[in-house]
Design a protein around this nucleic acid. Structure first.
Lengths: 94, 94
DNA sequence: ATAATTTGGTTTATAATATAAACTTATTTA
DNA sequence: TAAATAAGTTTATATTATAAACCAAATTAT
C-alpha cells in the first residue's frame, strides 16, 4: 500500500531546501536562493513553513552590515526527510 | 542543481496511480480506488488529469452489467514516470 | 412490484498551496 | 544626494487537491 507523503516535504521547493540543508551545517537565504533558483518571495514563504513545522531553524543576523538569514536543519527535519524518502521509495521502486 | 519535477506526477495520488499502472497491463477504477485508498471523486479528477496529459488511456466499458473504467499507462506516461523518478533522485540522494 | 441500498462513477464547491508581484528598509555606488 | 542594489517580507492570484454532493443503473430486501 502507498504510505502517506508528508505534505510539508512534498513540495518541490521545500524539498530542495531540505535536501540542500541535509548536506551542510547551515546555509543562508541568498545561497539557498541561488542554488534552488527560487524567487525570494517564494523562498521566504517556504522557509517560514519549514520553520513553523520545526524542520529548520532560522536565525536572522548580519553579515557585515547586510542582513543575513541563516537556516539549518533540525534533527526532526532530518528525521522527517529520511521518512519522506523511505515513503517515496514505495511509490517509485518496484 | 535541482531539476524541475513534472507537476503532473508530483502529486501524491497521481503518482500512486501511475506507480500502480507501471506494474500491470491495466487496472480498473475500483481496483485503483481500493489500492490507493482514494475517494472516488478525487480519483476521478486525477485520472482525468493523467488522461488529459496523455499519460494514461481510459476506456469506459462494462463488466457484466456494471460500468467499468479501465486505465493503462501509455508509453509517454511510462517515460514521464521514469524521468520523474530520475529527477527526484537528485533531491533525495546525496 | 417497488422501495431501499449499493455500485461506479462525475460534477461542483471549498480549502490549501505554490508562486509571483509589489513593497519595505537599509546599503552601496554613481 | 540620487539612483541602484541587496535582502527579505507581505499580499494577491492562480492552481491544486480534496471532499461533499450528486446521478444513473443495478442489485437486494420487503
Amino acid at each position: 500500500m502507498f504510505p502517506k507523503l508528508d505534505p510539508i516535504l512534498h513540495s518541490e521547493l521545500r524539498l530542495a531546501v531540505v535536501s540542500l540543508l541535509a548536506g551542510v551545517e547551515s546555509a543562508d537565504f541568498t545561497y539557498i536562493k541561488k542554488q534552488t533558483g527560487a524567487t525570494a518571495g517564494n523562498l521566504s514563504v517556504q522557509i517560514d513553513k519549514l520553520s513553523s513545522a520545526g524542520y529548520i531553524t532560522v536565525e536572522k543576523g548580519f553579515k557585515g552590515k547586510m542582513p543575513c538569514t541563516t537556516c539549518s536543519l533540525t534533527p526532526e527535519g532530518l528525521e522527517a526527510f529520511r521518512k519522506y524518502v523511505d515513503a517515496l521509495k514505495e511509490y517509485i521502486s518496484n
